[in-house]
Amino acid sequence: MVPQKFEYAAPDSLKSVLQLLDAGAKPLAGGMSLIPMMKLRLAAPEQLVDLQKVKELSYIRESGNAIHIGAMTTHYEVETFPVLLRKCPLLAETAAEIGDLQVRNRGTIGGSVAHADPSADYPAALQALEAKLVLIGAQKERTVSAAEFFVDAFTTVLEPGEIVREVIVPAEELGTGTRYEKVVQPASGFAIVGVAVRVRRSAGKISFVRVGITGLSNHSYRATSAEATLAGTTGAAADVQNAAALVAEGIDANSDLHASANYRKHLASVHAARAITTAISRAS
């Protein structure tokens, strides 16, 4: 359990980080996935650039109707930051479900999304939140949606030399009800399935609904047909069931020691129904 030899740099400015990345270095954020992979010699980067000292990447700021979260913000900070608890409780609730306290103290939102583990928790919420990710490299900065960002297992649209600089989530409109439901894989603590839901009601009907799914397949997604089925209904139990039944429709589900593809799909539907029900109960 010792890594191969690597160079290590820990500059304190984003600019220096980007220069090193441009020269081929691999970024190290919280190290919750990369370090174990290096110790198992499944990853062997020749040069690491540690973002830990880059203070300009660690912040949570409200601006207009959006909340900007710096990439090096830890899960624990996301879980407990008052503005997020008040205005984007879905993300805080999701962060609280990640790993254990030690992981939440070390792991970062930017590192997690960039790693794009198909069983990670954040992607479900980011899909449901229609979050935007600001990506930066030495030459350019660009903004992509969560839907565009997650491409495949451990694969994103990040180009070589590029990192996630910031995650932008909406400050929820008053009355939005949200919920993150997770089936925990008992060994790893990752999500066998995770479902993130946002709903708003208007005149007794569901006027807005977003459902994000993680863990089921190679990458997170928005369950749009479930959303369409629920929208416009009163959100009665039968409506919820009908919508939840569609969350795994057409999805090529993963299968492993902990859950077969069929069981995963079943869990996605069950927990989608539970998440939607709770979200509706939280909507006013």
Binding site: D100, Q185, P186, A187, S188, F190, L257, H258
Partner: peptide, 29 residues
């Protein structure tokens, strides 16, 4: 009773050969 199993596949590869796959109970469980 609930979680742990050392699973070898038919070729004798240990599938639950890491703590990410072998579920030792934690205090909160």
């Amino acid at each position: 009773a609930l979680w742990e199993q050392a699973v070898y596949d038919d070729n004798g590869q240990l599938l639950s050969g890491e703590l990410t796959d072998y579920a030792v109970p934690r205090a909160h469980m």
